[in-house]
Design a protein around this nucleic acid. Structure first.
Lengths: 186, 186
DNA sequence: CTCGGCGTAGACCGACCGTTCTATCCCTGG
DNA sequence: CCAGGGATAGAACGGTCGGTCTACGCCGAG
């Protein structure tokens, strides 16, 4: 028995995930439909329209899970766990086809503040904030939320700066600064 | 005598500067022409097309000069001068209509790596790198270029993160980390 | 005065945008 | 067996895209 082909919904999500990252959220629906090999109608049936699709792509990006896994693979020590994320960032930003943070990119491309991608991006980064704050808290950091803000600035800085100057290896530069955040703990 | 109205070229640059920032580089030429109150032909006469115009907007953004001024206003001490930039960033990111870094935004919106905006953004951030490296060098920093990489990650991080979580006051979080970069000097 | 260059105004081009629609097919459940 | 829902294919909608074109107005230099 062969692995069954995923349904139109999954194929649409996959195609949109790839194309909106490589080309930006302004890719045409035609391109997405062609890549997904799906009928036009199915898109509007499942997602109500292009906006619904790209919002759903952001929701199911799996980026948070990737960080969580990088942490868990690093063991128990919060310091090692946090630094492991920056090692992962070094890999991500050096990979071919890297085009920055998907969420930030979508927000910048869509001006209307009422568009659902903004709420989705906000929710994602709030989750990320909680992820780091928990580690800093466990470490006894004097202000875990401020420390997590600093980590997030570093993470977003790596993503943004690697778009323009990838050869600067921003993840390494940021890692050294992350260490000072971690050393704020007693 | 009244101040003479700027020529079509200047009006186009001004209009494009405002609109591409507020709406993204995907704004239509019609909108730019209307805002500039300029004939369609003049755009292609002066800039050869939309690409030429938005590239020229990036080149003449004046952001570098803004940082330089913030530094000069801060006096002579390199530490104070660098930290003054982050105070300026705090103002910039809190201002109404803030929409991130113009250069990063343009790069993310344009996939084609051969598009001139990428070279323009690269040149801009290289200039910025030199600006900070000079301060760190003057301070006796052991590795001014690495330190400048760190500062740039912080700057881009402030811009990017403020798009999604402005209430986190990322410029303040980054400022504290910039201090540790500066304290790497003897 | 006349000429040339720059500016304006606006029609026009083919291409593409997101969306809606009709029509047909296929598979599954009853 | 048939009915029905999900999927397909593709035409068509009005609107916008960046870019080219013609026609006309203005003004300073020859």
């Amino acid at each position: 028995m062969t692995t069954t082909r995923p349904g139109p919904r999954e194929r649409l999500l996959d195609a949109a995930r790839e194309l909106t990252y490589a080309e930006g959220v302004h890719v045409g629906v035609d391109a997405i439909l062609k890549r997904a090999d799906v009928a036009r109608r199915s898109l509007y049936q499942h997602f109500g329209g292009k906006d619904g699709l790209i919002t759903e792509v952001l929701r199911g990006s799996g980026v948070l899970e990737r960080y969580r896994r990088a942490m868990d693979d690093a063991g128990d020590d919060p310091r090692v766990r946090v630094l492991a994320v920056f090692d992962e960032l070094d890999r991500i930003t050096a990979a071919p086809g890297f085009r920055g943070c998907r969420h930030t990119s979508a927000e910048l491309a869509i001006a209307d503040p009422a568009h659902p991608v903004h709420a989705e991006a906000r929710a994602f980064k709030d989750d990320l904030h909680a992820l780091f704050a928990a580690e800093l808290d466990r470490l006894g950091h004097p202000d875990p939320r401020f420390g997590a803000d600093q980590i997030l600035v570093l993470v977003d800085g790596v993503f943004a700066h690697a778009v323009t100057r990838p050869d600067a290896r921003p993840a390494r530069a940021a890692r050294a600064l992350a260490e000072t955040v971690l050393s704020a703990a007693p």
